[in-house]
Amino acid sequence: MAWLVLIVAGVLETVWAVALEATKGFSRPLPTVVFAVALALSMGGLAFALRSIPLGTGYAVWVGIGAVGTALYGMTVLGDALTAARVSCLLLILGGVLGLKVLH
């Protein structure tokens, strides 16, 4: 159960990161609310998962999911550069996250 919550919390990290950009400096109410709710749920999920997953593993997996998700969103929706090098780096992060899960 902790791993499922951690994965959902990592996805919510992507949600709050995307919403943060959309707030335009917290000047737009709806994205600001989405940001705050996703941030609270993401942190709460991380805190829950860390009850049974070691801190280093849990935090790295949470950040990795959020970083990869946010980068993919930027490349597919926002027009960030999509290059073989960037995709390779994201695959390395994903491989590290999966490795931490397997070696847990």
Rank of each mutant, 00 (worst) to 15 (best):
M1N: 10
W3N: 06
W3Q: 05
L4P: 09
V5P: 02
V5Y: 02
V5N: 03
L6K: 00
L6Y: 01
I7W: 06
I7N: 05
I7T: 10
I7M: 09
I7P: 07
V8A: 14
A9L: 10
A9W: 06
A9I: 08
G10Y: 01
G10R: 00
G10Q: 03
V11C: 14
V11T: 10
L12M: 08
E13Q: 15
T14I: 04
T14H: 02
T14L: 02
V15L: 04
V15D: 01
V15F: 01
W16P: 05
A17S: 14
A17G: 12
A17R: 06
V18S: 05
T23K: 03
T23E: 06
K24F: 12
K24P: 07
K24Q: 13
K24V: 09
K24T: 07
F26L: 09
R28C: 08
R28L: 15
R28I: 14
P29S: 11
L30N: 10
L30R: 13
P31C: 03
T32M: 11
T32C: 12
T32F: 13
T32K: 07
V34M: 10
A36Y: 06
A38T: 05
A38I: 02
A38C: 11
L39T: 13
L39M: 15
A40L: 14
S42Y: 04
S42H: 03
M43A: 12
M43H: 12
L46N: 03
F48P: 07
F48I: 12
A49K: 01
L50R: 13
R51P: 08
R51S: 12
I53N: 03
I53Y: 04
I53C: 07
P54K: 08
P54E: 15
P54D: 14
L55D: 08
T57A: 13
A60Y: 05
A60H: 05
W62T: 06
W62K: 08
V63W: 00
V63R: 00
V68T: 04
G69V: 00
T70W: 00
T70P: 05
L72W: 04
Y73R: 02
Y73E: 03
G74H: 00
G74W: 00
G74T: 01
M75A: 05
M75L: 08
T76S: 14
T76F: 15
T76I: 14
V77R: 15
L78G: 12
G79M: 07
G79A: 09
G79V: 07
D80T: 04
D80W: 03
A81D: 14
L82D: 14
L82G: 09
L82K: 11
A85L: 15
A85Q: 12
A85W: 14
R86T: 11
S88N: 12
S88V: 11
C89A: 15
L90E: 02
L91I: 15
L91S: 13
L91Y: 11
L92N: 09
I93R: 00
I93G: 02
I93F: 05
I93P: 02
I93L: 07
L94I: 15
G95H: 05
V97Y: 00
L98G: 11
G99Y: 10
L100V: 08
K101N: 12
H104L: 14
